[in-house]
Nucleic acid binder design. Structure first.
Length: 358
DNA sequence: GCTAATTCTCTAACTTCGCG
DNA sequence: CGCGAAGTTAGAGAATTAGC
């Protein structure tokens, strides 16, 4: 079995090559969590996994609170379902917070500062209020908590990881913050083991075939914790070893048909790559360096053909037209060019704009 | 004044390397 | 092998300036 079969199955399980989902919240629930660092890119990550969704539809799901945006795991922004948010924050963020100790120290952020910030923000946000970053920083400054440099950023992140706040609706183009407990309905905290088992299964269903190490990296759990979580649901997973590496997928997953997996324009931080620490099934290490720039944590949008990443793309909006600039690592033949154009058209439909391909 | 062009500010986190 | 610290950049949107 070649390594590319792993990638092929992932396209299917991730609901990129076909999807039954009609609503953004169905996609997010299926995926467990979706990386949402680049806001506009991550709207597309949901859109491309949804039947006929437009960008406005995904934004509506965010304002209607059927999906929410916060830092539930790994110290990275994700979209999650409201029903999962509290359990995930409680389970995954303590390790992240510990890992942030160095940064907090550097910024002079101690327990007292966080407690004071929490009080200030609770008072300012109570009653369903939503404040932009700038407004939040003003509240902090008025309360004598310096929010300059990256302090404000880390305060927001920390309080979000503690489950006090999360992102609200956008005000114009600006994101806002609001109280989590006011933003989403109260949920009963599930039994820890059961919730972990269900979540682990969901990962291996939506991201499989994946390794235990992938799961550990994705969630930010330690290898030991990830191994234990995996062990608990192992009987419901199917195993596959390629080149000495063992991959797992949920046994309940439907079998992948061997039809051509198609051409896709994925956003920069799509789960197709960010769902795993080892990305070699979709792209070799040398090529990966091209999309990862100089290793600063920023990733280019990618072009996927036959389950392999074969190029990069970017978009610029000019009035009513989305200009899609596609760049192959090697060259695209005519068939591939046409397929890329068709994929760009799909994207422009999502944006509700005309498209021009360069 | 209005629009276009330009500049500026700010936001995100991944990988690698080294040490215990 | 696991963990922590350090290094690193593109792009969006706001703000400002230029041009007419």
């Amino acid at each position: 079995m070649p390594l590319s079969s792993i990638a092929h199955q992932r396209l299917h399980h991730q609901r990129i090559s076909q999807t039954e989902f009609e609503k953004p919240e169905e996609v997010v629930s299926w995926m467990g969590a979706m990386q949402a660092q680049d806001y506009l890119g991550s709207l597309w990550a949901i859109g491309l996994r949804t039947k006929n969704a437009t960008e406005a539809d995904v934004e509506k799901a965010l304002t209607n609170r059927t999906i929410i945006r916060t830092w539930p795991m790994r110290g990275t922004l994700h979209f999650v379902a409201p029903a999962d948010a509290r359990w995930m924050l409680k389970t995954f963020t303590p390790r992240v917070i510990t890992r942030c100790a160095g940064i907090y120290k550097q910024e002079g952020l101690d327990k007292k500062t966080f407690t004071k910030s929490a009080k200030l923000l609770t008072a300012a946000l109570e009653g369903g209020k939503q404040l932009t970053r700038k407004e939040v920083y003003e509240v902090l400054e008025r309360g004598k908590v310096a929010a300059g440099n990256t302090r404000g950023l880390h305060i927001l992140g920390h309080l979000a990881m503690q489950g006090l706040i999360c992102f609200g609706a956008r005000k114009g183009k600006q994101p806002t913050f609001t109280l989590l407990d006011e933003w989403i309905p109260a949920t009963k905290m599930p039994v820890a083991e059961e919730a972990m088992a269900a979540f682990t299964l969901r990962y291996f269903a939506s991201h499989g075939p994946a390794t235990v190490q992938d799961f550990a990296w994705w969630t930010g759990l330690s290898t030991t914790e990830a191994k234990a979580a995996h062990e608990a649901v192992k009987s419901q997973l199917t195993e596959e070893t390629i080149q000495g590496i063992t991959y797992w997928t949920a046994s309940s997953n439907s079998v992948v048909k061997t039809k051509s997996p198609g051409v896709y324009l994925l956003p920069g931080f799509d789960e197709y790559l960010l769902g795993y620490t080892n990305r070699t099934p979709a792209i070799d290490t040398t090529r990966y360096k091209q999309i990862a720039g100089n290793g600063n944590g920023l990733l280019s949008s990618t072009i996927v053909i036959n389950s392999q990443i074969v190029g990069m793309w970017k978009r610029t909006i000019q009035k009513d037209t989305a200009i899609v600039e596609a760049q192959a690592f090697d060259t695209f033949n005519k068939t591939q060019k046409n397929a890329v154009a068709a994929a760009a058209k799909k994207y422009s439909k999502f944006l509700d704009l005309d498209v021009k391909i360069i």
